[in-house]
Simulated assay, not measured.
Amino acid sequence: MPSLEDVRLAAAQLEGRIHRTPMVESSALDQIFGASLTLKAELFQKTGSFKVRGLLYKTLQLTPEERERGVITVSAGNAAGALAWAARDAGVPATVVMAKTAVPAKIEAARAYGAQVELVEGDLIAAYEAIRDERKLTGVHPFDDLDVITGHASLGLELLEDRPHLDTVLVPVGGGGLISGVALAIKLLEPGTRVIGIEPETADVVSRSLEAGAPQRLLTAKSVADGLAAPLCGTHNFQIISQYVDQVVRVSENALIEATRLVMSRTKLALEPAAAAPFAALLENKIDLRGTTAAVVSGGNLDVSKLQL
Rank of each mutant, 00 (worst) to 15 (best):
T260I: 02
G192A: 14
D204Q: 10
V195L: 06
L262F: 10
E5R: 15
G151K: 02
I179V: 14
L232M: 13
V120M: 09
N254R: 13
H152G: 01
S26W: 09
G77A: 12
V120L: 07
T235M: 12
E108L: 15
A102K: 01
A115I: 05
L155M: 13
P93T: 02
Q31Y: 11
D6W: 02
T38V: 15
L56R: 10
L307R: 09
L218C: 05
E65R: 09
N285H: 15
A127Q: 12
I196A: 04
D145G: 00
K268D: 06
A130S: 15
Q116C: 08
F44A: 12
D288N: 15
I131W: 03
V249A: 08
A110R: 11
A86L: 05
I240G: 03
G156M: 10
L302S: 10
P104Y: 07
A11H: 05
Q243I: 06
I179G: 00
T267A: 06
I241T: 03
R20W: 10
E272N: 12
H236C: 04
S49T: 08
S154N: 01
A203F: 08
I107E: 04
K306C: 04
L137D: 11
E201Q: 13
K100R: 15
R194Y: 03
A294Q: 00
Y113E: 07
A153I: 02
A80W: 02
R217A: 13
E272T: 09
A109K: 12
A11Q: 05
L232S: 14
V24N: 05
I32R: 15
S3G: 07
T95P: 06
D145E: 10
L39K: 05
D30F: 08
D167E: 15
L43P: 04
V97G: 05
V182D: 00
I72F: 12
G175L: 03
V120A: 09
L307I: 14
L119I: 11
R163V: 14
G122Q: 10
F143V: 03
G234K: 03
M1W: 10
P172Y: 00
L271V: 13
A126D: 14
G197H: 00
L256W: 11
V169P: 11
A28T: 14
Y128S: 06
V117I: 06
G197W: 01
M1I: 11
P200T: 07
A109I: 04
K46E: 08
G114N: 11
R163K: 14
A86R: 00
L283C: 08
L157R: 04
A225S: 08
L124M: 14
T73F: 03
I107V: 15
F44H: 12
V263R: 07
L228F: 03
V96C: 06
R163M: 15
I287P: 05
T38W: 07
G174M: 01
L9I: 13
L219M: 11
K40C: 04
S36V: 13
G291I: 14
E134H: 13
S154R: 01
T101P: 03
A76C: 09
V297S: 02
K268N: 15
P2T: 05
Q239F: 05
L159Q: 09
N237M: 04
S252Y: 07
E118N: 08
L262G: 07
D123P: 03
G213T: 02
V92G: 00
V148P: 00
D162W: 04
L9N: 13
E284S: 09
T235R: 12
P215F: 09
L170K: 02
V71M: 12
R194N: 08
L119W: 03
L219Q: 14
Y128E: 02
A221V: 01
D288V: 12
